[in-house]
Nucleic acid binder design. Structure first.
Length: 437
RNA sequence: GCGGUCAUAGCUCAGUUGGUUAGAGCACUAGAUUGUGAAUCUAGGGGUCGCGGGUUCGAGUCCCGUUGGCCGCCCCA
């Protein structure tokens, strides 16, 4: 029993765990780069006010926050958005647009542990700044899909539910509700899927009973699952603002369709995301079976950079969390098996032979091969067993007989065939062996 | 923050109505085996039975507390 445990909700990564994590990150990085996104990073520790400014005081309960030795109130970052808003806000005037940035970083939230949720977790974040039109959403939704597809996940495994807080604002505004009521009602819509009718309780406690006709219209609006339904609900006699918004929808859906991604996208106005700062399209990825919490989520937040970074910049972004994503890969049997085996394992006769081997070992490693050998003098039989168990492709045999003849023997641990190389040209010979047919 | 449930070796678990020095398999180390492969045999290391207190002649076992895991609620940027 270890003397110390990790803090609740924190994780150790043993080599095999870290290999899996790194493999996931590697694919996310490659994918983001393929989409033309560049990587950035920010401090883990930030001024507490950065998060207060965005989300208000009540958020403090879920922050790892404390006062540092300089009497500054600080917090471990619970998300990337405020930090990245600061970065782009500071240089908004000099950055080429569109600004396409991504990061892979660890975050901390003081919450109760649950399946797919801990107190520390990693997120892949991607954002586009400086593009106000739905072209940015096309790019980001496509990236989000590819970040999951790249692991072999299909439309049978997950889908992106697409909604629009802007449309909800127009719709509820047309019912005569003011902004405060609209925001409260969107909170109810967000909870409706989970809590049913009880979701409206908070609204009604604050503003009184919701007019039944209005409620009926809200319920039928949040049940919308296709663009056709949106059009028939709003299209006839719509205001210019709604007409323009419907054009944005057509552009977004058309773009995703042209990319061949329609099967991954589900229009679903029941998703509005709880966050008040989202201003337009919002999208959330779920597993198809509905067994896990959300895999990824994002949306447009056109007012936040101005609020946190000082310069007005339209923005869209999303994040994928590592925990739920890893659970989904496990469930589908898609967790990558990452080999950390050496390419070459050296079998060494004795101390004299060891000296001959060392020069070659270092030369091979310098070329980039993974090379291992026994630390101590052990029997040949054991060394061959160790070579096989290491997973190496070949064994290089430095025996006294071979070296006396000026050769080193290579044994293919797969087909058990052997060949000899001149002892003076081992690195070149191994290189030729591996690049040969 | 609330409720349910669980906790014995690195892993999976056994452990009698409370009774001697807490066990097995797997894994690990070494030997049999000083030049060729996942086998076999033998030996070894590894446990304050999550932690603390109580009941008892005696607690892994019963009681209370606590910490941690899992599941659900709240929340979920």
């Amino acid at each position: 029993m270890a003397m110390f445990q990790t803090l609740p909700g924190f994780r150790d990564f043993y080599p095999e765990d870290l290999a899996k994590r790194n493999h996931i990150f590697r694919i996310w990085r490659q994918t983001a780069a393929a989409f033309g996104f560049v990587e950035y990073d920010t401090p883990v520790l930030e001024p507490l006010d950065l998060y207060r400014a965005k989300s208000g005081d009540e958020i403090e309960a879920q922050l790892f926050s404390f006062t540092d030795k300089g009497k500054r109130e600080v917090a471990l970052r619970p998300e990337m958005t405020p930090s990245v808003c600061r970065l782009v806000g500071e240089r908004a005037g000099s950055l080429k647009r569109p600004i396409k940035w991504f990061s892979i970083a660890e975050f901390y939230r003081y919450e109760r542990m649950q399946k797919g949720r801990g107190r520390c977790f990693f997120q892949f974040n991607a954002d586009i700044f400086g593009e106000a039109g739905p072209e940015a959403e096309i790019e980001l939704i496509a990236l989000q899909i590819q970040c999951m597809r790249a692991f072999g996940l299909t439309p049978d495994d997950f889908c992106i539910r697409l909604s629009d807080r802007n449309l909800w604002f127009h719709f509820l505004g047309s019912l005569g509700l003011d902004e405060e009521k609209i925001r409260a009602l969107l909170g109810a819509v967000d909870k409706f899927e989970r809590n049913g009718d009880a979701a409206f309780k908070g609204y009604e406690e604050r503003f009184g009973p919701l007019d039944p006709a209005t409620k009926a219209r809200v319920l039928s609006f949040l049940a919308i699952r296709s663009f056709d339904e949106i059009e028939s609900a709003l299209g006839a006699g719509a205001s210019p603002a709604i007409t323009a918004r419907l054009a944005d929808w057509r552009k977004l859906l058309g773009g995703l369709s042209a990319m061949g991604l329609s099967a991954f996208v589900q229009v679903d106005l029941g998703v509005v995301r709880g966050l008040a700062y989202y201003t337009g399209f919002v999208f959330e990825a779920f597993d198809r079976k509905g067994e896990l919490r959300a895999l990824a989520g994002g949306g447009r937040y056109d007012d936040l950079v101005g609020k946190l970074g000082g310069s007005d910049l339209p923005a869209v972004g999303f994040a994928i969390g590592d925990m739920t994503f890893a659970l989904l890969l496990d469930e589908r049997g898609l967790t990558p098996v990452v080999s950390q085996a050496p390419d070459v394992y050296c079998v060494i006769g004795g101390e004299a032979e060891r000296k001959s081997a060392f020069a070659d070992i270092l030369a091979l490693r310098a070329i980039g091969y993974r090379v291992d050998y026994p630390m101590k003098e052990v029997a040949f039989g054991k060394q061959f067993k160790a070579a096989v168990e290491s997973g190496a492709k070949v064994a290089l045999i430095y025996g006294s007989e071979e070296l006396a003849r000026g050769v080193v023997k290579l044994r293919d641990l797969g087909d058990r065939s052997e060949q000899e190389f001149p002892a003076a040209a081992v690195a070149e010979s191994v290189l030729a062996f591996f690049s040969g047919p």
